[in-house]
Write a protein that binds this DNA or RNA. Structure first.
Lengths: 128, 128
DNA sequence: TCTTTAATAAAATTATATATCAATAAATAG
DNA sequence: CTATTTATTGATATATAATTTTATTAAAGA
């Protein structure tokens, strides 16, 4: 008796898949609580971080605002629009190289990294 | 009469220089308030972000904990120890290339980025 | 069905950062 | 040097993101 499948956990996972576009915990809460009004925000947070640790989701730490969660598990980066705040996928760029080089030059081991790009999204470009 | 030089601003700038190792706003506040007990935390935050915008300091947005501030203005990245939480300098890696490639593949313009590395620092390696 | 205990709901708490606003003091003019 | 202007400050309140706490609930195995 280790892990249990709860309705709440399933609803949270479904919401991240349905929302697709890198929702924040709050956005997930909004969607889930529409169908299941009594769900607690703490439960949403717990399940999001828990399932990220299990590898069912990806936890994206945004340097500015709230963290986001991604249903897509293949390696890639993210780009945030500096105008509307929307987050899109960005290409993954030679990550092994980055980590190796940083390890060599800093003396740190087990090196990983986060990259977040910023820019103006196509939509905000045309509305300017 | 535009910008004013205040004791508080000078104390904050000095503290970031003296602390050197990428202090958080809180660490700066601790040092400054030792010499100037009445200083407000809001003033420390205001001066840190203000001087970062003026280019006198660099504001490092950390994806996890509190933001940090760097007296060193030459371009480089940072690496955070996953054990002790300390932050060290990391090499800058082909940034123009990253931004260009991300812009091309996403359709975003005016692309910049943040990179933060994570790893185990030399000190935590030997204490393991 | 019963038992165990992982997971939940609700509220309080922590951490980081910003906003508000009356009071203060730095820069300049006279 | 003094007066004036207003940027800056201090104190507090507020905002946002996320975690902790604790009694209760319910999932899974016996």
């Amino acid at each position: 008796m280790e892990k249990r499948n709860t309705i709440q956990k399933q609803l949270v996972l479904d919401a991240v898949h349905k929302l697709a576009n890198h929702p924040t915990a709050d956005a997930v809460y909004d969607m889930v609580s529409a169908a299941h009004p009594n769900i607690s925000k703490a439960t949403v947070y717990r399940n999001l971080t828990g399932m990220s640790e299990e590898g069912k989701l990806r936890h994206i730490h945004m340097p500015n605002g709230a963290d986001r969660f991604d249903h897509c598990l293949t390696p890639h980066n993210h780009i945030e629009c500096t105008i509307c705040g929307g987050v899109a996928d960005a290409p993954q760029i030679t990550p092994e190289l980055l980590d190796e080089q940083a390890a060599k030059e800093t003396g740190f081991t087990e090196v990983t990294h986060d990259v977040v790009f910023y820019g103006v999204c196509p939509n905000c470009q045309s509305n300017a």
